[in-house]
Nucleic acid binder design. Structure first.
Lengths: 154, 154
DNA sequence: TTAAAACCCTTGAGTCGCTAAAAGGTCAAG
DNA sequence: CTTGACCTTTTAGCGACTCAAGGGTTTTAA
């Protein structure tokens, strides 16, 4: 099959597939006489695997690791477990951060009943105040640009 | 004051400050004879405002909007409220998504007791399965690359 | 048969919010 | 007078795509 059919079957998109090939996540496809990429069921299977991992918000690096373990079945899967445990930990930490963030945003929103002028806006005032302390933590990202977006668009 | 003092006072960093100037979030600083940027208390205040907003994970675009409203106090702050409401909604949606994600990851982790070979790894098997449905939603991002990082490093 | 539409290719640039490196100029202390 | 800390600009890198330009090919329909 050609690239757009593969994309359709995997619920993905052609540019992303070419990108994965460049990144070494998908093996290079064979080519037709006219230099079109030709894919097999094995490619589809692998692409779906990658998609599942992305739906679980894994990085391409993590997915590469998983693919290596899939390719060498003699190895112990403790590494796979470890990777997943770490990933779960990131997600849990991020949830905590976002809950704290939500609390702060709602506090801020309370400051300003509707219909005031910006000069008297409690929100702008609140954001100028030297409070709003930092929270600790590392690795696990933002609120915009989304996992949800990825899922919808693919 | 010079750029590194401003950075120190705001708990920010010099490169970020230059970046904000390029992006039009901070007004251009005046220059010394030797072409060094010279800042005033007003710059510091504005930078702190921006930092608070970033701590709340707002995009630079959203912050630009808030700064516009700060600059024109005659306008009604309904827009500010709306922006914040939307932002809260993003955060709430993202929390829900991550909770669902955590559930899926834990399910997956259950599949594979430690010490198996990759050939029999329930996780790799699980990721190959055609289940793992999409969830709806848009705008609000990933698990890696983090808000927490931003906060710590700045 | 032919012309338009739909597909394919590569390369390069853009997204976001920084961060860092390279290569140089300025300034204060020892 | 040299060392080192600071400042400047320009440029490229991160992750995971996404899109546009500028071409070639294949399919469809008039």
């Amino acid at each position: 099959m050609k690239i757009s059919e593969l994309a359709r079957l995997a619920g993905s998109n052609a540019e992303t597939i070419r990108y994965y090939e460049r990144e070494g996540l998908l093996p290079k496809a064979s080519r037709s006489e006219s230099n079109y990429r030709i894919y097999t069921a094995a490619h589809l299977e692998r692409l779906i695997f990658i998609k599942h991992c992305r739906n679980l918000d894994m990085t391409l690096g993590e997915i590469r690791t998983l693919l290596r373990f899939k390719a060498s079945p003699e190895e112990n899967c403790g590494e796979v477990n470890r990777l997943l445990d770490e990933h779960i930990e990131h997600v849990v930490r991020r949830i905590g951060e976002l809950q704290e963030l939500e609390r702060q945003l709602r506090d801020l929103r309370e400051c300003c009943p509707d219909g005031r002028q910006a000069a008297a806006c409690g929100i702008l005032e609140g954001l100028s105040q030297p409070s709003l302390e930092k929270t600790p933590g590392n690795h696990v990202p933002g609120v915009h640009a989304s996992f949800a977006n990825n899922i919808n668009k693919s």
